[in-house]
Nucleic acid binder design. Sequence first.
RNA 1: GGGCAGGUGGCGGAAUUGGUAGACGCGCUGGGCUUAGGACCCAGUGCUGAAAAAGGCGUGAGGGUUCGAAUCCCUCCCUGCCCACCA
Length: 809
Amino acid sequence: MIYPFKKIEKKWQKIWQKNNFKTWQGKDFVGKKIYILDMFPYPSGEGLHVGHVENFVASDILARYYRMKGFNVLHPMGWDAFGLPAENYAIKKKKNPMSFVPQNIKRYKEQIKNLGLSYDWEREINTTEAYYYYWTQWIFLRMYHSGLVYEKEAPINFCPSCKTGLANEEVLDGNCERCGQKTEIKKLKQWHLRITAYADRLLEDLDTLDWPENIKEMQRNWIGRSEGYEIDFKIKDSEEVLKVFTTRLDTIFGVTFLVISPAHPFALNIAKEDYYLNVEEYINNYFQNRNLKNFDQEITGVFTGSYASHPITGESLPIWVSNYVVEDYATSCVMGVPAHNNFDYKFAKKFILKIHQVISPSLENSQVELPYEEKGYLINSFDFDHLDSKSAEEKIYEYLKKENLIKKTVYYRLRDWIFSRQRYWGEPIPLIRCSNCGIIPVSEKDLPVTLPKVKNYQPTGTGESPLKNILWWVKIKCPQCQKWAERETQTMPQWAGSCWYYLAYVLKIYKKKKNKKIPLIKWDKNKIAYWLPVDIYIGGAEHAVLHLLYARFWHKFLFDQKLVSTKEPFQKLINQGIILGPDGEKMSKSRGNVVNPDDLIKKYGADSLRIYEMFMGSLSEVKKWDSSAIMGPFRFLNRVWLISKRVKKTRIRKDNFEVLKTINRLIKKVTNDIENLKYNTAISAMMEFLNFISDKSISKITWLKFIKLLYPFAPHLCQEIWSSFGYKSFLDKEKWPSVDERYLEEEKIFLIVQINGKKRDELEANKEIEFEKLKEIILNRPKVKKYLDKKKIKKIIFIKNKLINFVLD
RNA sequence: GGGCAGGUGGCGGAAUUGGUAGACGCGCUGGGCUUAGGACCCAGUGCUGAAAAAGGCGUGAGGGUUCGAAUCCCUCCCUGCCCACCA
């Protein structure tokens, strides 16, 4: 028989909705809080996928559990609806995203309702609504006034398909993060946010976070702090000086050439007559070809004819121009130490330059295969010979410092965040361009700068935003000189809205206007102080260096502005592992291996789907979908339904010790497992319990304890059973079962008998049994006797209440 | 090339952190019930040992530490993810 999941699920979803989800509302300033947050989705038109389900169910279990534990739970949901995915989809479907996004949201909400997820819908937010992006713009203006916003023409990544500039973080393997197109390098004037000003704090404060180590490591690598030295190399026959950045000062006597990037301002200037044309051609070539980022690019180069002198030895060092020097990192000039750097080595080999070993792995033997990139002891380094790398570094620094040729420096791999997009579907950047006064920020009282409705919102591809053509919107009186000026027509990147949305949930209020509730956001530091930080944040790892870095940056800025009270927004982070298709490949439409949650809900019910996804394996691991395996959880719930009917008729009032022991153990196990997000083992323990009682009669009390344990996982079924026992309450308001320790203690224990470390026998014995007594019993057991026969016992290992091991000769 | 995670039955995965390897579930086999079953119930299920028992072998490969290793150490192989001319 199949339990009537359709009827049950519909019934409770309706009741929950009718109750206006009041049970699930987080109340400001009431009791002990916990903030459980999901990464909010892009409402893309494809609908929810099984990955969303995994994410949302995982947090829903926590939310329901903590409500039963008496916490004041904040568990909100919203829509990250600006940005390329929604816009590209809208263009494909030839609809304006403004009219289109609400439809998608409606579909998402319907699906979420069908899953029985317990969100606080009063706090729902949508990044594309004016009341919301008012504040996105407001924070931006604050940043502007704090000097964190600047415009700069720079070579940036440009997606020819999305027709917009992209941030470094949005380019994966040279492809657009959104559409997969190969990106090009284009020189465009772009707004930047000075995230590098926060590099150190973004790095340091990672240590205070309870995040997966790999995500922290990714952020560390992305920030890429490196401490080193900037050294002056004088160019011969010139007044100019080349500044070189190195982290390996100890190898300075191994320098045999200098290399500068083709984009370095000196590149052409220092080229000597005979070399000028070569260098010019090389540089032109570089700029023509750099638009396609090529990862297996060959190292090329050209000699400038100029020489620099070594700051210590005065030796002449040829200056080369090469593509292997990154143009926008550090001084974009490198000292070539081919013996101790792999790239320098390749370069020297190719152009037959001197290779000069100055580091030796040990003092005794300097023989080593080059390039040798490890630290070691100095050789061929004049006065500094025999020093180890570290002390040599200090001594050489002292020496060059006296000559005023060196400076300690820190550089970051992290670049400032390119913050403007030449697209329609984003928050307008609240700035005004006046030909008289320059850039004028929109005044706070004129916020929000609303995005106009337009017919033609397709990207122009010329590097101009489609907003440029909407003259009525663009033309504006300059607030300063009152002459005609223009609005900035570029928009913010898709990540802007998600930089502070976890605060928006906390700050959302309603204003009543003619019986209508108008949503508003009102900055309230007390509310933020109460709810923040987010205690548990669940979402995909794909945002490791995007959203999670940007949001931390904004949060730290808000902290400096005294607008929030914590240094970090997200205390604990959990990444759910992605779910692969049944073929073991990433789910994608083109592969045709996408599993649709709607179908599964129809066939087995939301509760079965919820349990199946949590039962698949550990939350953070990558998992493969197996459609037939959902039958396990489905059967499990059917049996719960059946046994419930049986228990309803029982007359048993008091359970025997065995049953009480088992239920109390289960309570302990499930409680621990939920708190550690080990849902798979919690579920298997509940299955075990069901197997255990399937041929026994148990009391209603014990059964309903079990139903409460199962409730966060299968809320519809458990709520139905609860009410069928005559209870009117919502289980969210019921108390989580507590463990009665009396039943956890064992008076009998199972002892393992090992012989030479191998299990040969087991026996039940009284707890705390003494060694001598036990030994006597065991030595008389036939199984053991057989092994001990004629052999000498060398040693006996006895672990109380657990194991005894006889070591034989 | 660098960083991180991981490798356990036919499959998804457990294993209290050094102490019964394979919980739980899927699948499979046999039986029951049934007009029927892709429903349900019962039994079995790491490999090998022709059935049972005794035994032997077993956590990517090899070595080590230990009374005892999936777990700790060393060497190697493989897979996944992220970053990659960052000096």
